[in-house]
Design a protein around this nucleic acid. Structure first.
Length: 662
DNA sequence: GAGTTTGAAACT
DNA sequence: CAGTTTCAAACTC
């Protein structure tokens, strides 16, 4: 198996690059398109600062194979242009070459991960270009990838949103049409940034294929590791590097509104709890699968929500990107006031922050709000929710002696690696949230516990799986045969396979033996349950579903080329990488075919397919051996199969072993 | 907010 | 692999 290093070497080698560009295929492709290849800006320093000795991806995780991170790397970079950096840089072309070079270098550091030779030059070019963005440009409006386009590109009118690129980007560059198209669709996501940064983040995650590795890796640049996070004033070369790690984290949670004023307080925004509102992308697919709930929840409890605008945007038929852009910008500015409210809500006090988070979490936003309170684990154990979720601890965390920070990257990586070696699935989503539609369909599947399952099952003894102590319950899924719980009364589905119980009945039962407080708590649980149930019914209508599929697709497809083994992890972006910090989601169009083909039931189907498969495989490959027996919880699956839904397991990309291939 | 309970994670 | 300890979240008062 090719090591990333190998690939990198190949890629970075000028010879390799030129060879590629000179290849008949390349020439042929060029001849077919009016688009002219953009030569990378000659930059002698381009790779000079590269540090190829950067720690093995923590995330060694197999998905890190360079072959997977490439394509959209620049997107990862782009969507989250460090506002700080931008501010520091000259907004116009007056920027000195030196600065540009420096930026290019910084970018290149990121690009180490990239392995697509073809993109190499473009990446560099883009980034250099990026520095020329008018600082007044709302970053949120800048497409992840702002493919530079050729000066006289004649296709501008044909491609919606091209004007946008013109406005935002400089010219002279060749657009990568494939990317443009893809980006356009993604860009639409931002149609209403304020409506749901969660949504946006989800997409960012999706659009940040290399996020996983890059999350940590890029920040590992020498000299940056020990750089205090507050060192905004340091030369932006270092800052940019440093901030990349931070930004990664911030990015995921950063709210659109923050972006707006990013030039002023972007740094602060990084520490802002506002991020916490958003489902951290890249995180466990659980969050993705529950994402529709996010919208629902947001609609009722927050100012920003998933509105139909997304649908409009997604459909992309009624308005051009530019229009969407303008609208978005307007909306973004209009919604600015919302931010403070949320901020207040979250920052007023740690406790409060957490509470809000909890609400979110309960609503299914998953790890996005992970905030720990670790005191002894240094946030380097799975006890730490942040660490477990694959995200760095952030300011709102109340942890003590925390090592789960970008500056301790090495430690984090090492620890993570260690944990993964012990249990490759340690960082995989605990709950494989499948379609909640099961509750709705009414087919035999509904007679069985939710198809979603806790990966390993719970082991509750006293909570009866009715409290959040129970991971199944917390994950909003029913207990399964995998669970070793006692007295299971999981409202989402009992271990014994009985149908989802009526929460109200359960409630009554509980109330009879509980005091008021307890009743209130149960009410909370009930709400969670009901919300999820509601979500089920609304699932098909939510635009999120579309993205869910995209996300899932990326997750799956990205690992498509991996060796067959551990399908489950493949599905989830590769176990460890399913989490924000280590997540790797790539989009490889050609590889999407298989899954798309499978997804005959539409967007909603994908997660389910994956989930089912996942479940099967999870148990099959359970590293700790605790749950190696084939799951029998698939009575639901079979039921669904009978229901006309095709679950083609073999179509699911395989998953590479989490441990480095030898 | 302090203390208790709980069950996963880690350890032996 | 089972038993025990540690840990931090969830929960209670």
């Amino acid at each position: 198996m090719d090591t990333p290093q190998k690939s990198i070497t190949q890629i970075e080698t000028p010879v390799s690059k030129s060879r590629f560009e000179d290849s008949p295929v390349f020439n042929y492709i060029n001849s077919l398109s009016p688009i002219r290849p953009v030569k990378s800006i000659p930059n002698p320093h381009q790779f000079s600062t590269l540090n190829f000795t950067s720690p093995p991806s923590v995330f060694t995780s197999p998905h890190l194979t360079s072959s997977h991170k490439e394509s959209r790397f620049f997107k990862t970079h782009h969507p989250s242009p460090d506002p700080t950096i931008l501010v520091q840089e000259s907004p116009d072309d007056s920027k000195s070459n030196e600065e540009a070079a420096a930026e290019a270098d910084a970018t290149t550091e990121f690009n180490i991960d990239a392995s697509t030779e073809m993109e190499q030059p473009q990446i560099v070019k883009y980034d250099v270009k990026e520095t020329n963005l008018d600082e007044t440009t709302d970053l949120s409006l800048v497409p992840y990838a702002s493919p530079p386009r050729e000066e006289n590109g004649s296709a501008s009118e044909d491609a919606p949103g091209m004007e946008m690129y013109d406005n935002v980007q400089g010219k002279n560059e060749t657009p990568d049409w494939d990317r443009l198209i893809a980006d356009s669709s993604e860009f639409l996501i931002f149609s209403s940034p304020n409506d749901s940064e969660a949504f946006r983040c989800l997409m960012m995650q999706r659009a940040s294929p290399s996020q996983a590795p890059s999350v940590m890796m890029p920040t590992m640049q020498p000299g940056s590791i020990n750089e205090p996070e507050s060192s905004n004033a340091s030369p932006y070369g270092a800052v940019s590097v440093l901030h990349r790690g931070i930004r990664r984290r911030c990015l995921d949670f950063e709210m659109p509104g923050n972006k707006q004023t990013s030039s002023e307080n972007n740094t602060a925004a990084c520490g802002s709890s506002s991020r916490c509102v958003v489902p951290s992308i890249g995180l466990h697919l659980n969050a993705l699968l529950m994402s529709t709930k996010d919208c629902k929840t947001n609609n009722t409890t927050h100012d920003y929500s998933c509105s139909e605008k997304y649908q409009v945007g997604l459909q992309g038929s009624s308005s051009t990107l530019q229009e969407r852009l303008d609208q978005t910008e307007t909306e973004t500015r209009e919604d600015v006031p919302v931010e403070p409210t949320l901020e207040e809500l979250h920052l007023s006090s740690p406790k409060k922050k957490r509470q809000v988070c909890l609400v979110k979490l309960e609503a299914g936003e998953g790890e996005s709000c992970k905030r720990c309170n670790c005191k002894k684990s240094k946030c380097l154990k799975l006890y730490c929710e942040c660490f477990a979720a694959g995200v760095y601890c952030i300011e709102p965390c109340s942890c003590i002696d925390c090592f789960n920070k970008p500056i301790h990257e090495d430690t984090v990586l090492a620890t993570r690696k260690q944990i993964e070696s012990r249990n490759p699935l340690a960082f995989a989503p605990k709950v494989i949230k499948s379609s909640d539609l099961v509750l709705e369909t009414g087919d035999d599947a509904s007679k069985t516990p939710a198809s979603a399952r806790h990966k390993r099952g719970c082991n509750c003894k006293k909570s009866n799986c009715l409290k959040k102590y129970c991971e199944c319950f917390q994950g909003g899924v029913g207990c399964s045969i995998n669970c070793r719980c006692e007295g299971c009364k999981n409202a989402f589905g009992r271990k014994d396979g009985s149908a989802i119980v009526d929460m109200e009945a359960e409630q009554e039962e509980e109330n009879e033996t509980s005091g008021k407080n307890r009743r209130a708590k149960n009410q909370e649980n009930t709400e969670v349950y009901l919300m999820r149930k509601e979500e089920s019914s609304a699932l098909p209508a939510t635009p999120m579903s579309v993205y869910r599929q995209q996300l899932v697709n990326s997750c799956c497809l990205n690992n498509n080329t991996k060796k067959p083994d551990n399908n489950w992890l493949t599905v989830f972006g590769g176990g460890s990488s399913s989490s924000g910090m280590f997540n790797s989601q790539y989009t490889r169009k050609p590889e999407m075919k298989s899954l798309e083909t499978v997804a005959e039931d539409g967007a909603e189907e994908m997660p389910e397919i994956l989930s089912h498969s996942s479940i099967d495989n999870v148990n099959a490959v359970s590293p700790n051996g605790k749950r190696v027996s084939p799951p029998h919880l698939d009575s639901s699956s079979s039921g669904r199969r009978g229901g006309g839904r095709k679950l083609i397991l073999q179509s699911i990309p395989t998953f590479p072993s989490l441990t480095p291939q030898h």
